[in-house]
Design a protein around this nucleic acid. Structure first.
Length: 831
DNA sequence: AGCACGCCGACT
DNA sequence: GTCGGCGTGCTC
């Protein structure tokens, strides 16, 4: 105590879950000083009364200059829940993706680890009603009366009680009069799973004679006797007396149809005692397979990856579907785990199926944690804690698992690295999990393996420029053959009247043949619902943008065609400019319509559909999947959901209904995506020794992309596409940033967007600014949306400087005059 | 983002 | 009058 005056005060910079830049400095009370550290959760007051959970980001002795500090109220954990590497990772993410640290924290922490407060009202014990200091009105009296009955009321309770939208003014008045107190209550959200258990009480559990005596006693109570017998059957206390300690789940008796009331009686008599234990929400997984045997090709790839890792932090495994990438992953994971490091295996959401999880669980058992987006918050907290405690050294999970509290990663594997779902769109941070994973690995001095049958052109470019290592695996595992491709010319068929309900003659024949052979068919159409574009029925012409290498999207309400990239607009032509035909149709076929068409064309076939609409409920996906793999369905129609990670052994025919639709998607990645989706779905055909056939329907069979796909000419396709991207300034040659401007008044929104666009143009760094243009959806949730696309030169740290300039501009615009309520959303590397 | 506070319009 | 809607400013 006597030394205190000489000691400098201690401060902590706290990350709070609020969208405001920077951390917040709080004072550390000296009694809390010994137990505080980076990554601890603390409770602090934020604003007038609200209390929040924050994370300690930094501890120091520098008192802030221009404001008073509040004290840290409480430290929540003995051990940090977040480690220093994570704080670094969060900071990187906030900076790179132009968002606030608090937003990253919000995304990173399972909400079960976040606490917030609720305001409660209680009677002031000092208050003496007889004094009648102030006159009370009716509602104040109602509230006070209620508080005499119930010791506390939440604001919500008060509102209900008084039938008001907000009882705030009344509560405030009572506070001023000294009648009530308002205080904040924090509630822990995570609740462990509790299991009720039963065990024999003393002396029965120790003394066999007592137990035998008990049996004699219970011989006239058959129901109670049954319960005792059941217990002894499940818990062998004669052989293992210590087994009684753990007891037996209470539920077991009820499941066995034994009487609950008799059990209660036995507990009442003191024969059994009831107790609770905290159990995991995840079942124990036994290890059933430890030895992985690689084929020669796999072994070669494995060795190659390892030697790449000697000089490169990141390596791409380009392995065709069915080449057995999973075995290579397992082998690598085993090695890294044996060396004592952690491993993260990232999978896109739709690929994180029970199939692959079960496969990995056989090898890694309970050392492996699974992190699924469908998990409840309590389950997420348990995975988090499982990593902290060292229970899990391998996690298989979706995008957000990069935020789990790893402290010694040795390897991150990003499977299906080309998947666009690795990019988070909506709430900030708008991160690309694959790219973030590479940064995370770098922070851990770990390696990253990107795996794909159809690599993203960006990753492949990084291989070609020697930034990443590269390993290919082009043999199918078990010697299975690659599928044969056929191109079906939709226009030719239409002219000959062979096109029936969107199915070409060839595809119909192939389906029929498969059905005759009792084999299965996949029909791929990446669209549900209807969002039509325009196409000439005669020649297949589709309008394209004059300034960009993308097709125009038809907007029915404004009767025009638009480019979503540069904002180019055009009127809908009356006749086709290519051939003069006036048969310009809106085209659009979704999975639902295909399902219907198939049932008309093949009335004897059993048809199912798998898309977002049919898999909304929790187990629907699994049900459809099992129906199909169990052979109860002949034809499965679906969106990209059917292209991922599923291994259907009996599929021999895959139909791609409309390849053109993918190709003319208004996006510079359209060609890349088309190639990827076709190749991915084609990979579902002809596994396990049966040769598969893939039928691609198109109106433009002569396009080079089709020969490139059917001839497996990935590299040629890549080179051609890179030429285009270089010419039109698209990634990877530039860095793209999208700014979305939102306001409920369309005029304000447009003015703000124009103003911003001009300010961006004034930044003296090499870049191209496109727009502002109305958003694809011009009005969303009563907000008018404008978008600005920026292509920034990516040499050196130009993008970083540009981003900080951009943020300054946006910040100033926010404080400025009439744009205060305008929202600006920055999306770095948008998809 | 929340939340307080203040101004203003609608309605018993 | 009173209620509640919304605009504005602030949070260590």
């Amino acid at each position: 105590m006597y030394e205190q005056e000489n000691q400098p005060a201690n401060f902590a910079d706290i990350i709070l879950p609020v969208p405001i830049p920077n951390m917040f400095t709080y004072e550390i009370p000296s009694d809390l000083m010994p137990s505080i550290g980076i990554g601890h959760r603390v409770i602090v007051q934020f604003g007038q009364k609200k209390v929040l959970t924050g994370i300690v980001g930094k501890v120091h002795q520098r008192p802030p200059q221009d404001y008073e500090t509040k004290p840290i109220l409480e430290i929540l954990d003995d051990h940090p829940v977040v480690n220093p590497l994570q704080i670094k990772f969060w900071s990187w993410m906030a900076e790179y993706y132009c968002c606030h640290l608090g937003e990253v924290m919000n995304a990173a922490l399972p909400s079960g680890l976040k606490l917030s407060s609720e305001s409660n009202v209680q009677l002031n014990p000092e208050y003496d009603p007889s004094l009648k200091n102030y006159p009370m009105d009716d509602r104040e009296i109602i509230l006070l009366e209620k508080l005499k009955e119930k010791s506390e009321l939440s604001y919500e309770d008060c509102n209900k009680l008084l039938g008001l939208k907000s009882a705030y003014t009344i509560i405030k008045s009572l506070v001023i009069k000294g009648a009530v107190l308002v205080y904040e209550q924090v509630k822990e959200k995570y609740s462990p799973k509790i299991e009720n258990r039963i065990r024999l009480s003393s002396p029965y559990c120790e003394d066999k004679k007592e137990l035998e005596a008990l049996f004699t006693l219970l011989s006239k109570r058959p129901k109670q006797e049954d319960i005792l017998l059941k217990y002894l059957q499940e818990v062998p206390i004669y052989k293992q007396p210590e087994a009684n300690e753990k007891g037996l789940r209470k539920q077991v008796f009820l499941e066995a149809g034994l009487s609950g009331s008799s059990l209660k009686t036995l507990i009442g008599k003191g024969v059994f005692e009831e107790f609770e234990i905290i159990v995991s929400r995840f079942e124990q997984q036994p290890v059933t397979q430890t030895e992985i045997i690689l084929s020669d090709g796999q072994q070669e790839a494995f060795d190659s990856i390892k030697s790449q890792f000697e000089s490169k932090q990141t390596t791409l495994l380009h392995g065709i579907t069915g080449s057995g990438k999973t075995e290579i992953y397992i082998k690598l994971i085993q090695e890294v785990m044996e060396s004592g490091s952690q491993v993260l295996l990232l999978l896109p959401e739709i690929a994180l199926t029970t199939q692959i999880v079960e496969r990995l669980q056989k090898v890694f058992g309970s050392e492996m944690g699974v992190f699924h987006s469908r998990y409840s918050d309590n389950e997420r907290v348990e995975v988090w804690q499982g990593i902290l405690s060292g229970k899990y050294s391998l996690v298989v999970g979706v995008r957000s698992s990069i935020f789990l509290p790893f402290d010694s990663l040795g390897l991150i594997i990003v499977d299906e690295e080309h998947e666009s779902s690795y990019k988070q769109f909506d709430p900030a941070p708008r991160f690309q999990a694959r790219d973030a994973a590479i940064m995370l690995a770098w922070l851990h001095q770990a390696k990253t393996l990107l795996g794909s049958a159809t690599p993203s052109f960006e990753s492949y470019y990084n291989c070609r420029t020697d930034k990443y290592g590269y390993t290919s695996l082009f043999q199918r595992f078990g010697g299975a053959e690659l599928p044969t491709y056929h191109i079906a010319d939709l226009l030719a068929d239409r002219k000959k009247n062979l096109l029936k309900l969107d199915f070409s003659r060839l595809l119909r024949e192939k389906i029929q043949e498969a059905l005759n052979r009792q084999e299965q068919v996949l029909i791929f159409q990446n669209r549900r619902g209807y969002s039509p574009f325009i196409s000439c029925e005669e020649c297949g012409w589709t309008p394209e943008c004059e300034h960009c290498d993308v097709s125009l999207t038809y907007h029915q309400y404004s009767e025009e065609m638009r480019c979503h990239y540069c904002g180019f607009k055009d009127k809908v032509p009356k006749a086709c400019p290519a051939c003069g035909s006036n048969k310009l149709n809106t085209v659009g076929v979704g999975t639902e319509r295909l399902e219907e068409s198939l049932s008309l064309l093949f009335p004897e076939a059993r048809i199912a559909r798998m898309d977002l609409d049919t898999t909304k409920s929790k187990y629907a996906y699994q049900r459809i999947f099992e129906e199909f793999s169990g052979g109860n369905v002949d034809i499965l129609v679906g969106t990209q959901m059917i292209t991922k990670g599923l291994d259907f052994g009996n599929v021999t025919v895959v139909g791609i209904v409309d390849a053109d639709r993918m190709l003319y998607f208004p996006d510079f990645r359209a060609t890349e995506r088309t190639y990827q989706q076709i190749t991915q779905v084609a990979g579902r055909a002809g596994r396990r020794g049966k040769k598969g056939e893939v039928i691609i329907q198109t109106r433009k069979p002569d396009l080079p992309i089709f020969t490139q796909i059917t001839g497996h000419l990935f590299h040629e396709l890549y080179l051609q596409e890179m030429g285009e991207r270089k010419r039109f300034f698209y990634p990877p040659f530039v860095k793209t940033i999208k700014v979305t401007v939102k306001h409920k008044d369309g005029r304000v929104s447009e003015r703000a967007a124009r103003h911003l666009s001009n300010l961006i143009k004034d930044i003296s760094l090499k870049k191209i600014v496109l727009g502002p243009e109305k958003g694809l959806i011009a009005k969303l949730r009563n907000q008018y949306i404008y978008e600005i696309y920026i292509k920034v030169d990516r040499t050196g740290n130009i993008p970083a400087i540009f981003k900080s300039e951009l943020q300054k501009i946006i910040f100033n615009l926010g404080t400025n005059k009439d744009f205060r309520s305008v929202r600006f959303v920055v999306d770095v590397d948008p998809y």
